Simulated scan of single mutants.
Amino acid sequence: MHTLRKMRGFTLIELLVTMVLLALILSSAAPVMQISAKRNKEQELKRDLWQLRDAIDAYKKAVDDGLIKKTPGQSGYPPNLRILVQGVENPRDPKKAKIYFLRSIPRDPFANDPELSAEASWGKRSYASSFEEPAEGDDVYDVYSLSNDKGLDQRPYREW
């Protein structure tokens, strides 16, 4: 007598249903992953802007406190971002030690051109220019992102 043994395994339909369900799950997770990645870049942008602005303010305070020489007509803000990393000599220190404000210039996380240096990835506004129409000048009063994108809160990154 022949006994039929039942074959064990999955049918083609079961495999197709499983693949469709996996595809649906993955396609619904992709937007969440994109938003999470954008949120991380936004947090990095906020941190970098805070760090640069804090260093610019510290430089200005050092000028106001007489630790950095200022000529008449100068605003007291740094002439460029590099000087915050390179440091300036302290005239009050007999050893002429330098005062440093940054370890390195962070790169704008939303900069599109990988060829740009970290300093060139930021827009710079001089003390003499307005907020509405920022322009570079003899000093760096503020920095902003050059990205034309908008954040998750729909504000352009340039206005952060």
Score class of each variant (00 low, 15 high):
residue 89 E to S: 04
residue 36 S to T: 14
residue 79 P to D: 06
residue 110 F to L: 12
residue 36 S to C: 07
residue 5 R to M: 00
residue 74 Q to D: 11
residue 22 L to N: 02
residue 140 V to M: 07
residue 33 M to R: 15
residue 61 K to V: 14
residue 11 T to I: 07
residue 14 E to K: 09
residue 51 Q to G: 00
residue 27 S to K: 05
residue 45 L to I: 09
residue 69 K to N: 12
residue 119 E to T: 11
residue 129 S to D: 06
residue 103 R to E: 10
residue 24 L to Y: 05
residue 112 N to F: 06
residue 81 L to I: 04
residue 112 N to C: 00
residue 64 D to C: 04
residue 57 D to E: 13
residue 46 K to H: 10
residue 4 L to H: 13
residue 63 V to K: 00
residue 24 L to D: 10
residue 106 P to A: 05
residue 11 T to M: 09
residue 113 D to V: 09
residue 146 L to G: 09
residue 45 L to N: 03
residue 152 L to Q: 13
residue 7 M to V: 14
residue 146 L to Y: 02
residue 106 P to I: 01
residue 67 L to F: 12
residue 102 L to P: 02
residue 21 L to K: 07
residue 151 G to K: 15
residue 86 Q to P: 01
residue 61 K to D: 15
residue 68 I to K: 00
residue 103 R to M: 07
residue 17 V to Q: 15
residue 152 L to N: 15
residue 80 N to W: 04
residue 49 L to I: 09
residue 48 D to E: 06
residue 37 A to S: 14
residue 32 V to C: 07
residue 45 L to M: 10
residue 62 A to P: 08
residue 153 D to W: 01
residue 147 S to D: 10
residue 121 S to G: 04
residue 49 L to S: 02
residue 111 A to L: 08
residue 139 D to W: 03
residue 92 R to L: 14
residue 9 G to N: 12
residue 103 R to L: 12
residue 121 S to I: 03
residue 73 G to F: 06
residue 130 S to F: 06
residue 10 F to K: 04
residue 23 A to K: 09
residue 32 V to E: 13
residue 133 E to G: 00
residue 56 I to Y: 09
residue 112 N to Y: 05
residue 25 I to L: 14
residue 41 K to W: 00
residue 153 D to S: 10
residue 60 K to P: 13
residue 159 E to M: 06
residue 125 R to G: 03
residue 42 E to V: 06
residue 136 E to R: 11
residue 38 K to L: 14
residue 72 P to Y: 07
residue 80 N to P: 02
residue 95 K to Q: 15
residue 116 L to T: 03
residue 59 Y to A: 12
residue 129 S to K: 04
residue 109 P to E: 06
residue 130 S to E: 12
residue 36 S to Q: 14
residue 108 D to T: 05
residue 82 R to Q: 09
residue 30 A to W: 14
residue 42 E to K: 01
residue 32 V to R: 07
residue 144 Y to T: 05
residue 150 K to N: 08
residue 135 A to S: 12
residue 97 A to V: 04
residue 130 S to N: 09
residue 130 S to V: 05
residue 4 L to E: 15
residue 8 R to Y: 11
residue 106 P to W: 03
residue 154 Q to N: 14
residue 14 E to R: 05
residue 77 Y to I: 05
residue 147 S to M: 10
residue 46 K to E: 04
residue 58 A to W: 07
residue 66 G to D: 03
residue 41 K to R: 15
residue 32 V to Q: 13
residue 34 Q to Y: 07
residue 17 V to A: 15
residue 114 P to T: 03
residue 22 L to E: 00
residue 157 Y to F: 12
residue 30 A to T: 12
residue 125 R to F: 01
residue 104 S to F: 11
residue 159 E to V: 12
residue 111 A to D: 13
residue 48 D to F: 14
residue 158 R to T: 11
